[in-house]
Design a protein around this nucleic acid. Structure first.
Lengths: 148, 148
DNA sequence: GGCTTATCTTGACTTATTCCAGAAAGAGGG
DNA sequence: CCCTCTTTCTGGAATAAGTCAAGATAAGCC
């Protein structure tokens, strides 16, 4: 978890003014990877008191544009944000509870990064989403199911 | 393009009642791959006259559940539907105009189908989305730009 | 400290989708 | 072919996520 001054530095490097909402959103995204906007709003409000949801939406967009956070949007889910940027990692999504986990581009080679031409498209990114069940939801022998 | 009676057969095989809206939606999805719900509603209305949007939403869900159509949801886009099901193909999405094209799981091997275990997740599907520019939007030498 | 401009607040609005209750229509038995 | 039962469709309201817009506020720079 980077320090507040590290966040400040990140913002300045991105040519973004350093404001309390921005520092707080940045911290929240670092602290809660794959959180949705609503969770981030709640975390920020816990930190700073009342902050408009619009401010958080603005900040998230600015941070995403500046490359300080990454926005992911698994099918059927709202937008989620993570602070791990600049590498080529992917995500597993649980079909049952929706939880998201990181997956490194595995097995030695990285087909995922290989820019190429397909049907005349100039492809610059390959995004991989794995679907399945998380350990909790998969547990076939579990007697207790806390949430249906 | 399958015939109307083929669509009827498909519906019956899926234990779905054969109704005019269903036949029409099925035809529309076959005819307009990657169309969004609104386009499908318009196509169906052109075919049948007034049909409630709710009916089309219901039908699309039923067809998706029955595996007769596939729903895709690229980040930043509304839901889109296609009739090509049962194979392992992926999609390229144009960052500029949003157009979608099919991409076969290429290059000989199919990492995309390999179910596996990652972080304890039981993975059953890998979905790949390629991002880039379509031929029209990429055209660097084009003088005319019909839409900004 | 004062100025300029980016950012935040407030509140309305849009868009995609779902929920609900009653009317209509498909499917199977007589 | 008609009846009944159930599924599906209609119409309208409701919801959720996110965006737009105008004025107030606060960063950053001199």
């Amino acid at each position: 978890m980077p320090s507040p001054s590290a966040f400040e530095h990140l913002l300045r490097q991105g040519a973004l003014r350093v404001t309390r909402p921005r520092l707080s959103v940045l911290a929240a995204v670092h602290e809660h990877p794959h959180a949705d906007t609503d969770s981030i709003i709640r975390a920020v409000r816990e930190d700073l008191g009342e902050v408009s949801h619009q401010a958080v939406y603005n900040v998230l967009r600015a941070l995403t544009t500046a490359g300080l956070v990454r926005r992911i949007e698994p099918a059927g889910s709202v937008a989620r944000y993570e602070a791990r940027v600049g590498d080529n990692h992917h995500h597993v999504v649980c079909r049952s509870c929706g939880v998201v986990a990181d997956v490194d581009c595995a097995v030695g080679y990285t087909p995922c990064l290989t820019a190429s031409e397909e049907q005349g498209f100039a492809i610059d990114e390959a995004e991989v989403t794995y679907w399945g069940l998380c350990p909790d939801c998969a547990a076939p022998t579990a007697h207790r199911q806390h949430s249906s």
